[in-house]
Simulated assay, not measured.
Amino acid sequence: MPGRLTGKVALITGAGSGIGLEASILFAKEGAQVVAADINEQSGQATVKKIHDLVGPKSAVFVRVDVAKESDIANAVKVAETEYGKLNIVFNNAGIMHPADDDAINTEEKIWDLTMQINVKGVWWGCKHAIPALRRAGGGSIINTASFVALRGAATPQLAYTSSKGAVLAMTRELSVIHARENIRVNALCPGPIRTPLLMDFLNTEEKKQRRLIHVPMGRFGEAIEQAYAVLFLASDESSFITGTDFLVDGGLTAAYVTPEGQTKSLPPHSNFSGV
């Protein structure tokens, strides 16, 4: 029985860990040939090895990509077309959440600029260089990783990150409209709090973790594989009439006005939370 992505070629950035790792493996299992891109050669190569062991030697190739460099992204698209003859799916997933990111008063300009360079320009360049390739392939799907904080303010200050993800969401919407009649779909994945190294390094105390979790009705961090399954749907032809969406996979966080009563015990003692 053919997989959900049989015959398709996918480029995934940030493929060495977290959501990118799980999506790369899942895509290959579902029949795609995967160009796994990451700035970390060791972790990116490890992803490809896992895919080769599970699926076969022609199922994936690694390319080193620093998404802050336009030439690296252009080269990754070229690798996809050279190695596999076309490009059908792009998952612009790579991003950072810098531990020094804070509020408007305390975030340094260099942190702001670095975050925008990677999280916004990296996605823009991914779309810029992928769209001509998707046209050559007769259409395709782009998925950009945004965040629930593109729609809601974060409980722990992270202004540069939040602003960058808002930009990704706006960019996604506009590109979806511009390219809708070219059979090119553009959607944004908006994860809730996920148990990945990126977020766990940022929420580096139990108090910070609980401050985030108290807003999640399901009461737990999501897992990277849960996001990967959502990306698989957006990449596949099953979502052929879906474009321009902010696809929320957030444990109910953005639907919640108040959190379940049982979770209020995790609030810090000084809180004025009243439950209304």
Rank of each mutant, 00 (worst) to 15 (best):
E108K: 15
I178T: 13
W124Y: 15
T196V: 00
E226K: 13
A32M: 08
E226G: 12
T172C: 08
V48M: 05
A155R: 09
Y84A: 11
A167L: 03
G20W: 03
G275R: 07
G275L: 06
S59F: 04
I142M: 02
I111E: 03
W124D: 03
M1V: 08
D237A: 12
G18N: 10
E108F: 11
L189V: 03
N119H: 05
G251A: 05
S17A: 12
G126S: 10
T205K: 06
L151I: 13
H179K: 01
W124Q: 04
F247A: 03
F241P: 08
A104C: 12
Q33M: 13
L267D: 11
A235W: 01
W125F: 15
S163G: 13
V35S: 03
L11E: 07
K208V: 05
S141L: 06
E174H: 14
R135E: 12
A36W: 07
V77A: 04
G219E: 03
E261R: 11
K49S: 12
E41V: 14
K208P: 01
A137F: 10
E174C: 13
R4W: 00
L134R: 03
G126Y: 02
F221C: 07
S163A: 15
K58S: 12
P57F: 06
V48Q: 01
V90G: 01
R195S: 10
W125N: 12
I96S: 04
I118C: 03
D72Q: 08
T245W: 05
E223Q: 15
P132E: 11
L26I: 05
L203K: 07
P193L: 00
R211Y: 01
E207L: 01
A104G: 04
D246W: 03
A80M: 06
V216M: 01
L198N: 09
D38R: 03
K78Y: 09
E206C: 00
T13E: 05
K165P: 06
G18L: 04
Y161C: 09
K58L: 10
G122A: 05
G138E: 12
E108G: 07
K265A: 12
T162W: 00
L21P: 04
P57T: 14
K121P: 00
K50V: 01
K69E: 14
E223H: 15
E174T: 15
V79R: 02
P191V: 00
V231H: 04
T162V: 14
A255S: 14
T82R: 14
Y84M: 10
A10S: 13
D201K: 14
G222H: 09
I105W: 15
N88H: 15
K265D: 04
N93Q: 11
F273K: 01
A94P: 03
T196N: 12
G153E: 11
Q117C: 05
S274N: 15
I51F: 06
R211K: 14
E41M: 09
A133F: 07
L87G: 06
R152A: 14
I143E: 05
A155C: 08
E182D: 13
F247V: 09
G153F: 06
D102V: 00
I184T: 05
K165N: 08
D246T: 07
L213T: 14
I89Q: 01
I111L: 07
A256N: 09
E174V: 14
P99L: 09
K50T: 08
V177M: 14
G192Q: 05
A23N: 09
F91M: 05
T47E: 08
A15V: 12
D66C: 02
M1Q: 07
K50N: 10
A160G: 11
I105G: 06
G166F: 01
D237C: 11
V34H: 05
